[in-house]
């Protein structure tokens, strides 16, 4: 499964609003989206807010995002952009 790596850069980390934005963006694609911390083992479903919150991704955490199926490349690009613009917060 192709994957990309992104670093959480917003000060407050991946709290509820960013997790919601992530899951909603991921949910807009037909591709499957799996996410894990690069220092962890467990993959979670990137389309689930609850599972994204389980990553406890603080500022500086590196996440691996794996997308698969039809629009996988578009999904990866959209999610990378969302993380890189820090979920439109500080």
């Amino acid at each position: 499964m192709p994957s990309i790596r992104v670093t959480i850069a917003n000060r407050l980390g991946l709290h509820a609003r960013p997790a919601t934005a992530f899951a909603q963006t991921a949910g807009g694609f037909s591709a499957s989206v799996k996410v894990r911390r690069t220092d962890g083992q467990e993959w979670v479903d990137g389309k689930s807010i609850m599972q994204m919150l389980m990553l406890a991704a603080t500022a500086g955490t590196v996440l691996e995002i794996a997308t698969e199926g039809g629009d996988a490349a578009d999904a990866a690009n959209a999610l990378r952009a969302l993380v890189e613009r820090q979920f439109d917060e500080d």
Binding site: R11, L12, G13, A16, L53, A56, T58, A59
Partner: peptide, 10 residues
């Protein structure tokens, strides 16, 4: 302490 908040959510 934003990291505490994230840990509690987890």
């Amino acid at each position: 302490r934003p990291e505490d908040h994230l840990e509690a959510m987890e």
